[in-house]
């Protein structure tokens, strides 16, 4: 049982982080809070993927030592180096996540210019009032 917990507790903590981000996206009303929750969500998924490339038992960073032209005679063992593939994919994902955050913040500034608030329920109330006024006017 203890062995099972030691083998799996990392995944459980990643799930807890994902739950925190998802709750902030669903339950909070402030739009900046929703964005912070989206960042936490993305980072937890990236953390999960990076942790898939971990090898126990003396594996090091995937940078080869010695002759950089590859003509060296040293023998490369696969178990000596970490898995480089998740690192590459998550490098792309981090940059894409910051681009998403930038576009979302620009949209947020536009929303504030138009409604003068960032709370979701106040924005919905203003929109409802405006649409009722429009139907009354016509």
């Amino acid at each position: 049982m203890l062995e099972y917990i030691l083998a799996k507790y990392n995944y459980w903590i990643y799930v807890v982080l994902m739950m925190i981000g998802l709750y902030a996206m669903m339950g909070k009303r402030n739009l900046v809070k929703k964005l912070i929750g989206m960042n936490i969500f993305q980072t937890s998924i990236i953390l999960f993927f990076v942790s898939m490339g971990v090898k126990k038992g003396g594996a090091t960073v995937p940078i080869l030592m010695g002759d950089s032209h590859g003509h060296g005679e040293q023998l490369i063992q696969v178990a000596d180096y970490l898995n480089p593939l998740p690192h590459v994919l998550m490098l792309t994902a981090i940059v894409v996540s910051i681009a998403t955050t930038g576009v979302a913040l620009a949209t947020l500034i536009l929303i504030y210019k138009r409604y003068h608030t960032l709370e979701e329920d106040e924005i919905l109330a203003i929109r409802k009032e405006a649409s009722a006024y429009k139907t009354l006017g016509t």
């Binding site: 090898k55 995937p62 940078i63 950089s68 696969v78 180096y81 480089p84 593939l85």
Partner: peptide, 29 residues
């Protein structure tokens, strides 16, 4: 967690680790 023989660690990446330096002359995989 950290199993060296898990499916994610044993399919595509051994080829990268073994051949990347030979094919691209870059020490950073």
């Amino acid at each position: 967690w950290g199993d060296p023989n898990s499916p994610a660690n044993s399919h595509v990446s051994p080829r990268y680790i073994l051949e990347a330096t030979k094919l691209t002359a870059t020490p950073n995989i």
